[in-house]
Each structure stands twice: as C-alpha cells, then as structure tokens.
Design a protein around this nucleic acid. Structure first.
Lengths: 214, 214
DNA sequence: ACCTGAACACCGTTCAAGT
DNA sequence: ACCTGAACACCGTTCAAGT
C-alpha cells in the first residue's frame, strides 16, 4: 500500500518510452501528500514541496490531477475505501451481531486515530461541495451503507429497537465521528481518556443508555 | 454583537487623537473575518481582503493581533464564550434536570448550525497546538465544565448512572460535536434529517439506549 | 504522452517611514 | 500610538516549449 521510497526506485512497471522519472507518479504523489500532512500538517502541503520531494517539476502534478483539490479528493476517496474495508472486516470477524457491531464502532475510531491525515481530508469539506467528486461521494456512501446494513441486521435479529435505521445510523456515525475528531485533535488527551478508551465506553453506553436502571 | 457596517461608521467612542479610520478596528476585524468565512469559506479569508473591506491597509491588522493565527484564535475564543452562554441559558431556562440536559444538547447543536464559521474555527486546530492561546484554552475548558457540572447534578438527583462524569461528559460532547460537524458539513441533508432533528432523536436515545426493551 | 521552466496573479509578514 | 506603502519569500496555476 504505502510503498515508494524517496528517490531510489525505478522499477519499470510501465514500459519506458523516454525513460522519464517515475514508475507511478500518481501513486507516489498520493502517498507523498499523505506523508506531508502527517508530518507537518495540512497547511504544509504544497504542490511545490511534493514536487521537490519527488524530484519532479512542480507542475508535473497536473498530468495526473486536475488541481490540488483533485489530489485531496483522491486522498479522501482512498480513505473511505480503507475505512469501509476496516468496518467490514470488524463486523465479519465477529460474525456480526452485537459483538460485531461494537467491533465496528471501535474499528471506526481506530482507523481515524491510525490514519489522521486521511481522516482529516475525508471530512475536510470535499464531500460538502456543491458538486462533490462522484467517486468520492460513491465511496463515502458505500462506507455509510455498511453501517446501515449492520443496524438493519441487528433489528432483524431483535437486538436493536425498530427505529428508522437511517436515523439510527446517522446518530452512531455522529458519535464515532465526534470521538474520532476530538481524538485526532488531541482534545481527549487527559490521563487514560484517549479516543479508543472513550470509544469502548461509548459503545457500551449507547447500547444501554445512561439513565439509572437502564 | 455583530454591528459595524461596511464603511459608513465613525462614532467617536475613542477620543480622536489624529482622526484615523475606525472606532474599534479590532472588533471590526473580528466581525469581518467571521463574515468572510461565512460568505466565502475558510480559504477566502485573507488579511488583504479583510483590510480592503474595512478600507484599511493590509498590515493594519498587526496592530491588534500578532498574526493571522491570533485573529482566528480570538474568533474561536469568542465562539466558546457564546457557546457556554447558550448552554447555561438552556440548562437554567428548564430549571436543570432531565429537561434541562436535553435542552443543553439541542442548544449545542443549534449554536453550531447557527454559527458555523465560529464553530469551524473553534475546532480548526487552534486548541490542539503544542501551546494553545491561554484565553482560548480557558474558555474552551469553561464550556466543557458546564456540561460536566450538569451531569454531576443529574447524578446527584439519581437521574444518571454514576459513571465517571468526565468520561460521560466526553461521550456526550463527542455525540453533539459529531452531529454539529456533520450538520455543518451538509452531510445530514437528506429529507428531514437535519442536524436539529437528529439532535432531538439522539438526545432521547442516549438516555434510554438503543437496545430493545431498554 | 509526459515532463519542463518561465511567467502571472496571488498570499502572509516585515520594516522603515509617516502622522 | 496607530497607520501606511514598498519589499520579501512564498503560494497555485497556465502555457509555450521540449523529449
């Protein structure tokens, strides 16, 4: 997944027509963008810096992406695929059911905390544009659908109230999204109250409620 | 609160020493920053544009703020004060208790949706810096404390489980924060599933849980 | 097709200078 | 004290030109 060293690669996966610089510049740019955000933050991501690190002209990017925004949309899209995969794996490893659902909740937060750069870009506003990238919208929808399907399965099994599953899914999504965001932003860093601990706590309380004798 | 017209004000609140341009340039810049973000988004906020709109040099800002970052931190700080005020009002108007707490949850989301620019800046990373602005950190903490105090009161009244109130508060905070963020980002805009509707739904489900016969 | 350098219209910030 | 214009070191993006 995250291959590509800084300068010492040149495997000829593509036939070398004029022997330029890279094997897969698009892939390298995606990885380099994520790495830059992870290391130095969102503001430090400049096309010129990416180009420089990849030893490529600062306009080479425009051969693979329409503009900087398209690069970020591609990062976001990749992130949603990774997230969906993680959610499906968590659900299936536990064989679904109550335990599968709780594993999904934890997997969501774990993904966000492990891939903060991807996660920040995923919810950095590219989805809420007037006309978002179609690929991005599709992958985001697919990730959400995994959550909805799991809830419907739980309802069929009599484990969850028969509320509107979409509304229920939005609420759970908001909860894990909130934990993920606060965790990534370092706002949960008091003692043992990290995002993952809070996630486990919340997943149990969302099931039984917070009232006494719930 | 949000006074100051575009160019036709000049009330001499301060004694006019040399009769420069503004009565309260700091205040005007704060308001203009919020207005710009609201109208054209975060990326459109440039010091030069703010200066131009206020008919002031683009370096005039540095008389009132250390840099652009300090301007935004001031906006965030103001936002937390507004949020805390809204939360306290909601709690007290209902006389506390279960209804007061639910009103607080709704007030949180309503504030965020009504002041998306402030809210975005509040959680735009200024709190999670290595050493955040002291005023900002204090006001953010004060807002969170309102939530914690309410939960402790509910526990004393026997209305909420005696979990660690800090952990409980973090979970509720994550939930309303998640709803607020998704709402502001337009990710809840399906049919009647706006942030306020979801907020009301969530506030009830968090109380009783989502399990059957909760 | 894929990549390049020069050029254009922007940024935030600094600084000597004005009132 | 408060504000100014010029200057500096950056941006993203376009475009004619190279291979």
């Amino acid at each position: 997944m995250r291959t590509m060293a800084k300068s010492s690669e040149k495997r000829p996966l593509r036939r070398p027509p004029g022997q330029y610089h890279h094997g897969d510049l698009r892939r390298a740019m995606l990885d380099e963008a994520v790495r830059t955000i992870q290391q130095d933050g969102m503001d430090a991501l400049t096309l010129r810096a990416v180009g420089a690190r990849l030893r490529v002209s600062r306009t080479a990017l425009y051969r693979h992406f329409a503009d900087k925004s398209a690069l970020l949309a591609a990062v976001a899209c990749e992130g949603f695929v990774m997230l969906r995969t993680a959610l499906e794996a968590a659900w299936q490893e536990q064989g679904g059911g109550q335990r599968g659902f709780e594993a999904m909740g934890r997997a969501y937060v774990t993904f966000a905390v492990a891939n903060p750069s991807h996660y920040r870009v995923m919810f950095g506003g590219f989805l809420s544009r007037p006309s978002p990238d179609p690929d991005l919208a599709r992958e985001a929808g697919a990730a959400f659908t995994v959550l909805v399907n799991a809830l419907v399965a739980l309802q069929r099994a009599g484990l969850v109230r028969r509320d509107d599953p979409l509304q229920l899914a939005r609420m759970i999504w908001a909860l894990v999204h909130g934990i993920a965001m606060l965790g990534i932003d370092g706002l949960l860093a008091h003692e043992a109250a990290d995002a993952e601990t809070l996630s486990a706590f919340a997943v149990e309380r969302i099931r039984t409620g917070i009232s006494v004798e719930g």
